[in-house]
Amino acid sequence: MSTATRKTSFGGIALGILGWIVALLMFFPIAWLLLTSFKTEAEAFTITPHLFFTPTLQSFETALSQGGGYWHYAWNSAVTSVVSTLFGLVLTVPAAYAMAFYPSKRTDFTLVWMVSTKFIPAVGVLIPIFLVYKNLDLLDNVWGLIALYTAMNLPIMVWMVYSYFRDIPKDLVEAADIDGASMMQTMTRVILPLAMPGLASTCLLALILAWNESFWSITMTNHSAATLAVFIASFKSAEGLFWAKMSAASVLSIAPIVVLGWFAQRQMVRGLTFGAVK
């Protein structure tokens, strides 16, 4: 590991170049998507790929306006991911708080149980949820999807928030208790401000997972509650027809999350490792 300090050696330079090659190769499909989104349909669909062309916003205009278009789905994606994250937070913070600062004999069991529910694959609960939703008129309904996303992210959120709370010295809570602060006061005035960065990265992760989710939105929605995942998936049958439009729609759908992810990558990873990385 100490080789990191030998910057100027030939091997060091070669490995640096290798690092850049890796980065560019990994990013290439996204770059190509971006490039295609600025082409006309004719330019996007050629035997010999065009690297140089006159950029046009034509495909973006089509993607944004055509057939209800992007905004309808983007709104649904935004509402379902934001609201489900907020719901998740409301359920998570008290639960993680109780387990981190007032652990009982059953706390370990509860935590492990919560993570283990994440091992129930979505298909394991798909059928009853679909049938119950059908009876309750929750199919193709934003609230139905929000509830599913909340349940989907809850175990991971509890774990992340718990591991952030666990890093806060217990003495702080005890001191506040002795000073006669109520549990609510201790939580909102002492602990939450300290855990704010952790809470923020937990929310970002939940947001990203909900935004990118496709299984539930494809099975549970049709049009009125359909998210961007459903919109993009609808391009799958139009194979070979509208690559530029498909690319423009895809760019618009992934851009917010890729940018958000870039900002939050480090904090998110730390929380996700369940305390294995400090």
Partner: peptide, 8 residues
């Protein structure tokens, strides 16, 4: 290099 992880 990490960007693909955030792609839908």
């Amino acid at each position: 290099a990490v960007a693909p992880f955030f792609v839908m």
